[in-house]
Amino acid sequence: MDIVDAHCHIISEDQTRYPKAPIGGKQSEWAATRPVNAEGMVSRMDEAGIAQAVLVQATTNYGYDNSYVLDSSRQWPERFVAVGTVDPLRPDAADSLKAAAGDEGLAGVRLFTSGSTVPTQGEWFVAPETFPFWERAGELGLPVCLQMRLGAATGQLVELLERFPGVKVLLDHIGYPDIADSPARAGAEVARLGVHPGLHLKLTHRNLEKLRDAGSRADDFLGPVVEAFGAGRIAWGSNLPAAEQSLPELRALAEDVLSELPEQDRREIFAGTARRLYPGLVRA
């Protein structure tokens, strides 16, 4: 099967050329203890039978300095595209985004509003100061990965999607829905967002592990979510090396959990969606 990893991270050993500058000043535990460089990612992809990958900026290691994902995507254009991080609150954010997306530039951008090193969910991503950024992303057709947690900030996400319906937004880790507590309730929460055509879901180990543990109840989540969004708006990403498992194990986890879906749906989730979002992923 054609497989694209829509969410993985790389970190260089060369801290002189690529210095650490994590958002919030705190490096994530995985970045410090199990980094994988670009060469290592290529090797792991070959081992797992994965054709191409989206290099998502390791925000908790490099902050807004996108040099390493850009240099790596330029070195291996047949294997990678780069998704970088910008500060949408800056007055020059829209112009910076246009410049960064130039020839051999960023294929997408990521906003990191919550995570292991940012436990408090930020709601600044829909502040009026960010509107020029969102407008420019729509003009450029540049997908925006949004790392956030559903819940208190869901209203801001809906406001964003209604204000900028032309922007393709990818919800990293599907916004961390509480599948463990109730797959059905989590599925309904996510499915309600399917009415927004610009919203896409990024399915990773953070969701898949909970679905595996849910056993037969996994379809209480997957059923309504796939019906609401369609497989064509869902993309699989490994989250390596933030995920502790090997890449073959992460692929196997996804294939196991999604095994009951129709083959065409699985083809979309494992490659089709990512290829439409990132046209630079030209299939060899």
Rank of each mutant, 00 (worst) to 15 (best):
A6W: 01
I10N: 03
I11H: 10
E13Q: 13
T16H: 11
R17H: 09
R17P: 05
P19C: 04
K26S: 08
E29C: 04
W30Q: 11
A31K: 14
A31V: 09
R34P: 09
A38P: 03
E39P: 02
M41V: 06
V42Y: 01
M45E: 07
G49S: 06
I50S: 05
A51F: 05
Q52M: 04
A53Y: 02
V56C: 07
V56N: 06
Y62M: 08
Y64I: 07
D65F: 12
Y68A: 03
L70D: 05
L70W: 02
W76P: 03
P77D: 02
D92F: 05
K98I: 06
A99N: 10
A100I: 04
G102N: 05
A107W: 03
R110I: 00
T113A: 12
T117K: 09
V118P: 08
W124C: 02
F131Y: 13
F133Y: 14
E135D: 09
E135I: 08
R136W: 06
A137W: 03
V144N: 07
L146C: 04
Q147A: 14
G151S: 01
G151M: 00
T154Q: 01
T154M: 01
G155M: 00
G155E: 01
E159L: 11
L161M: 15
G166C: 10
K168F: 06
H173G: 01
D178H: 00
A184T: 03
A184N: 05
R185T: 12
R192I: 01
R192E: 14
H196L: 01
P197Y: 01
K202I: 01
L203H: 04
H205T: 11
K210Y: 05
K210I: 03
A214W: 01
G215Y: 03
S216K: 11
R217T: 09
E227W: 05
A228L: 08
W236F: 13
G237Y: 07
A242Y: 09
E244S: 15
S246R: 14
L247V: 13
L250H: 06
A254T: 10
E255L: 14
V257C: 12
I269D: 12
A271I: 02
G272N: 15
L277M: 07
Y278K: 10
